[in-house]
Amino acid sequence: MQQVKHIFKKELKDYFTSPIAYIVITIFLMVTGWFFFMTFFLNNQANLRNFYGLLPFTFAFVIPAVTMRLFSEEMSIGSYEVLLTMPVSFRDIILGKFLAGSAFVAAMLLPTLSYPITISFVGNLDLGPIFGGYVGAILLGAAYTAVGLFASSLTRNQIVAFIIGLLICFSLTLIDKMLLFFPGSVVKVIGYIGADYHFQNIAKGILDSRDILYFASLIFLGLYGTALAMAEKK
């Protein structure tokens, strides 16, 4: 566990000592802020539904950009070899990097807390969905981070890692909106795969174990895939 902590600290520090972190956070806040407040006063409702509605899409774009460097950079400069010859296991490396990525996503979400705070001044805010939404956002963010980490472990090229990550996250976001095109027998299964569907459930303020299990299994799959990709390189 000590090793996970060291790697986590190093990766998180890396994020905040490079300009990429600030660029990504700025873009994320601009996009979510703009789309949220553009329609907020037209709707005239004191909730964050629009913000949560959009979040899976912004995450699908932003998180792969956050995670793309985690393994690709190490492999392209060769420090991956140095890392693996230190007394750390695959598990330590993967968990350390995954937690650092998730922590960064949480840090990115932090400034958006100002939305519910400002809204609470102008209207009556229902705290249940707000709280649920943030729990869901953390889970969704962690799941996409795991997917992005997996994409990053596949290639030494960060751009390619970004595109693979984007592709998977975007498909997961959109797939339950494409049910029309699938035969009736698989609709239920496909519907269950959609990340947006599970996120919106939680964002309604209902913490269902099925939704939590979904995100947990997505995280597990992402990390397991990463471990397989690492073992493949040996």
Partner: peptide, 9 residues
């Protein structure tokens, strides 16, 4: 390893 591939940042 060859050419000391360390984290350059």
């Amino acid at each position: 390893p060859e050419s000391a591939p360390l984290y350059h940042n």
